[in-house]
Simulated assay, not measured.
Amino acid sequence: MITPTSWRKSSFSGGGEGNDCVEIAPLNARVAIRDSKAPADVTLTFRLGAFIAFVEVLKADTSRTVM
């Protein structure tokens, strides 16, 4: 198992200390995702192409509400 070492927080981090978000880290041809409030818990990984497609859909969805 490969452990990511360079986590980055989402640009949509919540108020306060910015802990209400996800973090991502690159892993060769994959992207790892974890909950910033529980970094020791489960980490999900996705193929890079699938992650890029997912982010593009989120960017295009103007009906979603950002809290």
Rank of each mutant, 00 (worst) to 15 (best):
P4H: 07
P4Q: 06
P4E: 13
T5I: 10
T5V: 02
S6V: 07
W7R: 00
W7H: 01
R8M: 12
R8I: 11
R8G: 02
R8Y: 07
K9E: 00
S10Q: 03
S10N: 06
S11E: 03
S11Q: 02
S11W: 00
S11I: 10
F12I: 12
F12H: 15
F12W: 05
S13Q: 03
S13P: 04
S13G: 01
S13H: 07
S13M: 06
G14M: 08
G14Y: 06
G14S: 03
G15R: 13
G15K: 09
G15E: 08
G16F: 04
G16E: 12
E17P: 02
E17D: 15
G18S: 01
G18L: 06
G18M: 01
N19V: 14
N19Y: 11
N19F: 12
N19H: 09
N19A: 12
N19M: 14
N19Q: 15
N19L: 11
D20H: 09
D20F: 08
D20R: 04
D20M: 03
D20L: 13
C21I: 11
V22Q: 04
V22F: 03
E23G: 07
E23F: 04
I24Y: 13
I24R: 07
A25M: 01
A25H: 00
P26C: 13
P26E: 13
L27H: 04
L27M: 11
N28E: 11
A29W: 09
A29R: 12
A29E: 13
A29S: 13
R30A: 12
R30W: 14
V31L: 06
V31S: 01
A32K: 07
R34W: 00
R34M: 02
R34T: 10
S36M: 14
S36R: 06
K37A: 04
K37Q: 07
K37H: 07
K37L: 00
K37N: 02
K37R: 06
K37V: 00
P39I: 04
P39S: 08
P39G: 01
P39K: 10
P39V: 00
P39M: 03
A40R: 13
A40K: 11
D41F: 15
D41L: 14
V42M: 12
V42W: 06
T43N: 05
T43C: 11
T43Y: 02
T43V: 10
L44N: 03
L44Q: 09
T45K: 08
T45L: 03
T45M: 03
F46V: 00
F46P: 01
R47L: 15
R47A: 15
L48D: 02
L48C: 05
L48K: 11
G49P: 12
G49V: 14
G49M: 06
A50L: 09
F51N: 01
F51D: 08
I52E: 15
I52P: 09
I52W: 11
A53V: 02
A53E: 11
A53W: 03
A53I: 00
A53S: 12
A53N: 10
F54H: 09
V55Q: 10
E56H: 15
E56M: 10
E56C: 12
E56W: 06
V57K: 14
V57S: 13
L58Q: 07
L58C: 14
L58M: 14
L58V: 05
L58E: 06
K59L: 06
K59C: 09
K59D: 04
K59P: 00
A60G: 06
D61N: 15
D61W: 11
T62A: 15
T62R: 15
S63W: 07
S63V: 08
T65S: 02
